[in-house]
Structure formats: C-alpha cells, structure tokens
C-alpha cells in the first residue's frame, strides 16, 4: 500500500540525509544543545528493539522553567475539546495540557531573529509531478473492510451538520 506512493515521491529516499543536516544546524541553538541527549543511540545486537527511547532521556533545566504556569480556562478546554474531538475535562487532562503549554512555551526562548522559518525539511526539493492517468481505485470492498458500519457501498457516519431550522420552525411539533 505504501510502496507505490513512496516510489512516486522520489524525495523520500534521501530524507534521512537532509534531516541529519538540519539536526547539525539546529544543534548550534541553545535549546537544541540541551536536548542533544535525546538523540537515540543505536542498539547493537537487538535488531527488533525500538529506536525510540521508552523514557525521557533528558530533563528540563532550572533556567528553562518559564516564569508562570499557564492559565487553562474552561473556554479554552471547551474550544480544544471541540477541535480535537477529545474529552479531557478532568484533573489529569488539565494538568497535562498545562504542562504541554509550558513545554511549548520554551520555544519562545530560541532566538529566531533573522531566521527564515522552515516549512519542511523537504522545502529545497523538487515537487514531483505525475502524469494525469488513472492507476488507482476500484477497491471499495477492501476500503470498506476498515469500516465499522456500512450500507451498501457507503461508509456510515453519525449525523453531521445540517442547516439550522428557522426559529419558528423549531417550535413546531
């Protein structure tokens, strides 16, 4: 499933190289320096072991602590719950959110003056253009296998957003 898309993309193969380059550049920044420990070490022998560390390998330093704890209002939770479609209106959820905001705020410490923002590590790559031919599709059955509920060849979803009826209409039985 993945293979054809990757093959078309072409840019993917040399991604690792680009990424390594960026890491080197970034390592000059103060924040990056303290994060350096997070670069995972290759494990010898255990071929199937995850390269992602199971626990944080670094800690926030004293001077990196932001001055104030962020305010998490009910309005903010409501807004984020709506955006994320995730229910986290409990003590643990709010604490986690506060911590996440605190962590993200650290980015403000980085001096970015005169630095052009980078969209993506691929931004200096050519965008591959493919010819306009039909090569895919006709796999409804396979796709619908992933669905919890189907009707004929349709996916079934909960009712979506529909126009709001007029006020006088709403009062009708």
């Amino acid at each position: 499933m993945l293979a054809p898309a990757l093959r078309h993309c072409g840019i993917w193969g040399s991604l690792t190289k680009t990424w390594a380059l960026r890491v080197t550049l970034l390592s000059d920044l103060p924040l990056r320096r303290s994060l350096r420990g997070s670069v995972p070490q290759l494990e010898s022998g255990g071929a199937r072991a995850s390269k992602v560390p199971q626990n944080p390998t670094w800690q926030m330093k004293e001077k990196m602590q932001p001055l104030e704890t962020p305010q998490v209002t009910f309005e903010l939770i409501d807004h984020l719950e709506r955006l994320a479609l995730v229910d986290f209106r409990n003590q643990e959820g709010v604490e986690r959110l506060a911590k996440a905001i605190q962590f993200a705020d650290l980015l403000q410490e980085v001096n970015t003056e005169g630095v052009e923002p980078m969209d993506s590590v691929l931004e200096d790559r050519c965008l591959y253009l493919q010819e306009d031919t039909t090569l895919e599709g006709n796999c409804a059955e396979e796709l619908l296998k992933n669905a919890k509920q189907t009707v004929e060849e349709y996916f079934v979803a909960p009712p979506g957003n529909i126009p709001l009826p007029r006020r006088e209409e709403q009062e009708l039985p």
């Binding site: 499933m1 898309a5 895919e136 599709g137 006709n138 796999c139 409804a140 796709l143 619908l144 004929e152 060849e153 349709y154 996916f155």
Partner: peptide, 9 residues
C-alpha cells in the same frame, strides 16, 4: 458507484 473511485490516499 459509491466509493469506487477511491485510492488508499
């Protein structure tokens, strides 16, 4: 026919 013109992407 529904969902007949759909790729994995």
């Amino acid at each position: 026919p529904p969902n007949s013109l759909v790729s994995f992407f």
